[in-house]
Structure formats: structure tokens, C-alpha cells
Amino acid sequence: MQPFTRHTGVGVPLRRSNVDTDTIIPAVYLKRVSRTGFADGLFSAWRAEQDFVLNSEPFRSGSVLVAGPDFGTGSSREHAVWALSDYGFRVVISSRFADIFRGNAGKQGLLAAQCEQPDVELLWKLLDSEPGTQVTVDLTEKTVQAKDLTVSFSIDDYTRWRLLEGLDDIGLSMRYSEAIADFEIARPSWMPTTTPVRGG
């Protein structure tokens, strides 16, 4: 996982509340054997509508999604986060996130930044009046800044620390690589390995 300290990119106003994970990525995309390639499925029903925000420039290449309250409700599928990241989003801003989505996002390095709803509305206004506005999200300062608007967001300390350090669960365990290596040296030599035997 890439450490996340600060990110600047085009802000995308998604003026919808209760965006569930079925909407983010429909079930038909779940049969895949990969974790990548889900960008196609992101908001696929909405992207079929011409006036959907991601169908117009400069929003198409956005990386900071500013959404309405209750983002990521419904099914627990990790694919929702994979799809957003795969499309290019690094940050989702909302005034309320579904718990499981927030957890999955934290595991996968997508920043779920919680802002007050009035601040979300100020961002929407700005992004609509000046499409393509660059938004800077600073995880150290816990701020979102666009033009001369600066608002703050909240995130739990543990997730913030992991994102700043770039540590996913695997990364966290890898900090103990030395302890793992020591443990391996001490294992009895007769313990089995799967290396083929009998010329197999």
C-alpha cells in the first residue's frame, strides 16, 4: 500500500446520498478472477446515462469523489473499493460512510474522509461552478482545500496512522519480518516442505 500524506486531483461532485455498493459495482462483475479491471463496472448503471458526472470532462479524470451522506451502504463486497481505486479515485468525501465500506477502504488505501454536510455542499458548489477545480486533501493536517476554501475532515487515528505509514494488514505484519525470519531459523529441520520429493 502506498503511503498517503497528501493528494491533489480533480474533484468530482456526486450529488447523491445512500450510494450503495451494488450501485458502485453490480454483482455481475464479481465473478472475475482478478482484483483489477473493476473500473469498467464502477457506477456502470449511472455511466450509461449521458448526464452522469463522470461522463463529462474534466470530471472523467477525477480522483477526489465528493459524495452525499451514507456512502457505501449494502453488501460488504470489497470489490466496491477495488473499483473506485482502479478507476483512479484516491479519496472519497462524505458526511457519513457505511462502516464496512469505511473498513474496506482503509485496508486498501482509499481515504474515506468524513466532512460536515454543509462543507460538502460548499465543495459541491465550488466544483460545479468551476469544473476541473483541483482539490488537495492533506491527511497530516486533516484538511480539504480547493481554491480559497479550506474545510477539515475526520478519520479515526488508527486508520490515519496506517494510511500515513502506507501499511495494509500485510504491510503491518511485514514490519515484523525480522521476527518472522528469526522464528523460521528456530523451526526444527524435520518440519515438512512441499518441495517435490522422490523426483516428483
Binding site: D169, I170, L172, S173, M174, Y176, S177, I180, E184
Partner: peptide
């Protein structure tokens, strides 16, 4: 996790 680290928390 196991493939990468041979451990589990």
C-alpha cells in the same frame, strides 16, 4: 496475507 508473510494476525 499468508502467501506474502507466512503468518496471520
Amino acid at each position: 496475507h499468508v502467501l506474502a508473510t507466512q503468518t496471520l494476525p
